[in-house]
Amino acid sequence: MSLLPGRLLTSGAGAVLPVAPIEVDGHTMGSESLLRYLQIKVHHLIQEQPWDSIRVVGGYDRRAVISQYEKNGKLFNWERPTAEVRDRDLLVKAFPGTDYVRHYGLIIATYLAMTGRPADHITYQLPDPALCRTAVEQLNLGLDGELVIVGWALEHLAPAGAVWTRGSGYAWQRTTVHGRRVVYLGFRHSIWGDVAGRVVRRLAELGAGDVVYVGKVGALVPQIEPNTMLATGNESLVNDALVTWNDFFGDFASAQPGVHTGVHVTSPSILLENRDWLTKHAEYAFVDPEIGPMGMAARNAGIGFGYLHVISNNLARHYPADLSNERHRDVVRRRAVLIGRIRDIITNRLAAHLS
């Protein structure tokens, strides 16, 4: 069974499917930045030695071999897929989610091709929907109408010095802001793509009143320099259909200086965002894998949802900062300023609700 470069098949759970590397020359990141991005994502066992076969599956297994490239100095979003050695074969275990399993398969295949190694032995196996649901159902905390803030930079958004209560793969803390009960919720593992939608659905089941997602998006508008502005909105293109949700921020966030608003595009993998993809979506403003599934889940559950993200990279024009050098000192400094702006906007939005 053959697979065209960069194409992801949509067969059902359990099928073992081959994955081929993308055409690097057409990718919006450019080959140099793309390779740097892949090098910090690919498990060290894959970078260090050849394997007869590599299969990516859905499975949250911290007992398997942990990658040496995990950024474990962070409180959240630092766990990466683990690996289980089976003689000359390698089983790579990603957190159960269709988008994440496919995405990581593309990462491995493209990395191997870019480093001059065979990539025709890479496969992925889509996780069963029941496994995906069960993995997210490990999230269990009592909620009663709270605003839940989930995502990135939470350690800088939550009250300083407060103790995080730890669960299975996640941690949270509760506070009150201008009379509204607020829960900050972070995950050690990635909640990529459809996983993020399941997280919102689970939060609604547990009693959340609103969910705000703080993270990073890519800009599709050439003039926006990375790490200088924030993004917000209440619409996303998901599988070529426009999804709209009840925006927690209303018009408040978009009216603030330094905040760009527009229609978002949901993309299941950064590896698929080539020049043809960009041309097709040039009329839109932002891209990431999570916002659309989260907004759709919130809409279906009847709760409010909003996002307020750092614009971290630009697909339409080359800038020095991109997804391959996020640990650079200047990038970190600029993002710290924007995180402060996110904190202020959320706080002021809650204060405005009282007036």
Rank of each mutant, 00 (worst) to 15 (best):
E235Y: 01
A130T: 12
K71H: 13
A219V: 00
T266N: 13
T110E: 13
P293E: 12
A204P: 10
V183G: 03
G250N: 08
T123Q: 06
A241P: 00
N325S: 11
A160R: 07
G218W: 03
N234I: 02
G258M: 10
R349W: 07
H44N: 10
I108E: 09
F187D: 07
D251Y: 04
A20K: 10
R299V: 06
D128E: 14
G186C: 00
V238M: 14
S53Y: 06
A15W: 08
I291L: 08
H27Y: 09
W152Q: 15
N234K: 13
T28R: 10
G215N: 10
V332W: 05
W164N: 10
P320W: 09
T266Y: 04
S2Y: 10
L147R: 06
E70S: 10
W277Q: 05
R201Q: 14
V263N: 01
L185M: 10
P127A: 02
G14W: 01
A336G: 14
A208R: 10
T134E: 12
P293M: 09
W78E: 06
V200Y: 11
L106F: 04
G292I: 12
I40E: 11
A298D: 07
A282T: 12
P226Q: 09
L242F: 07
S236K: 03
N239Y: 01
I108S: 05
N348W: 01
S168G: 00
L203S: 10
E225W: 01
D99C: 09
G186S: 01
R317H: 13
S67A: 15
N300V: 05
Y37A: 04
D25F: 02
N300F: 09
W51V: 09
L131I: 11
M294A: 12
Y170D: 01
V16H: 00
P18C: 07
P222W: 11
V211T: 08
I46K: 03
D128G: 05
